[in-house]
Write a protein that binds this DNA or RNA. Structure first.
Lengths: 210, 210
DNA sequence: GGATATATTATACATTGTATAATCTTACAT
DNA sequence: ATGTAAGATTATACAATGTATAATATATCC
């Protein structure tokens, strides 16, 4: 999260990026200490020592701060995860492994996760058509599915994009259900169920080898 | 939508229900004429001739009005739909038929649909744990899946509740994607794809009869 | 009729998010 | 270097949301 140097960057762009970073630092600290709902944009602006309007220039709503923070975290995790996946035998296993990694973090940061997921879902619908903002986890899933297709394991008559979108929303719902009542079920087990349902479908399969 | 009589109901309960109905009528009319975003709670209260606070007592947020309206519509449609399903041969066909019926209405009322879906999704997550508010379409889907299980067509190792939840969210996403750019694809075709993906999964099936 | 519960109301308030125009800083070309 | 254009920050004002509190009206029940 440090404001490290970026080569082709003027003073202006750098300063803007620095205040952006500062906002995120300050805000996340306040969120952790007093909770998300008890922290106002006013307060964030004050602690970050900028005008409220400047804060709104960077982040149109409070949730957007959390979103950007989580994106960075997620990006870091993804890099670590991806290499380990190649050893695994099939698509199902790879998907579960990829998601498990992400959920270690989720389990530790439930509130942030909830805020972030809610915001992303809302944006997926109401937001503008910028589907550009792909999550790191999403691009990993895309890669896994594509590999599965090439290996002849995953069907080709449905686009990768659609499948990833569906799987992504499915896992979102599961996480949010878990957040509402963590004691009710184990996140990983539920996740494995979802992946299985996604891959094999709802149809009853006849056992080929009894 | 008329305030028809309900047998065991006192004057007080009736009056409350009547103002509730009036709010919905007035609000929906305003929404249709000037758009959802251009209509304020203030204005709704004024036209309905009640205090703003009373309005908030009935509906905590503007979206809730739309939600209740749509619930009523949906209930009406569901009743008409259900009987026709029994003639259809399998789960897949039944699901597609049930959803197609609902989407006739969706295609005519895109704005309302968008508001309503966004609200429901937000509530599914952030809202309180009252999963009681089951949609009419959801209960139809529940019934279809259950029948499928009994016929040995649908797997039994995953709960009906989970499957309906997943399918429901899937169709929600599809509709919202369609709303963002109706010209991009046909809603029904996309819906059939989703149902197929839900039933048969993402796995590549070997053709048994070539 | 009077006590009690509930719906409605008036009022005030903190917060959100937007709009406008002024001010300051950087970038760039002459 | 200097003036100008672009863009970032700011002060200020505003409409609207959603909540809290206490007062008032209305219905219900004994």
């Amino acid at each position: 999260m440090e404001p490290m140097d970026v080569p082709g960057e003027g003073r202006m762009e750098r300063k803007k990026r620095e205040t952006r970073q500062k906002i995120i630092e300050v805000a996340m600290d306040l969120f952790q200490r007093q909770g998300f709902n008890n922290t106002t944009m006013e307060q964030i602006a004050e602690v970050a020592d900028i005008a409220r309007k400047t804060l709104y220039n960077h982040f149109p709503v409070k949730e957007a701060i959390v979103d950007e923070y989580v994106k960075a975290i997620s990006k870091g995790l993804a890099k670590m995860t991806f290499d380990n996946l190649q050893n695994l035998p099939d698509t199902s296993t790879r998907l579960i492994a990829a998601l498990d990694k992400a959920y270690e973090w989720v389990e530790i940061n439930p509130e942030i996760t909830g805020i972030c997921l809610g915001y992303r879902l809302k944006n997926m619908f109401m937001g503008p058509g910028d589907c550009s903002g792909e999550t790191a986890t999403q691009s990993i899933m895309t890669e896994i599915i594509r590999q599965g297709q090439q290996a002849g394991e995953i069907r080709r008559d449905v686009s990768v994009k659609l499948m990833v979108e569906q799987l992504n929303i499915s896992r979102g719902v599961i996480v949010l259900n878990w957040l509402k009542d963590p004691s009710r079920f184990e996140l990983r087990k539920e996740m494995a169920k979802i992946v299985d349902l996604f891959i094999y479908g709802a149809i009853e399969r006849e056992e080929l080898e009894p």
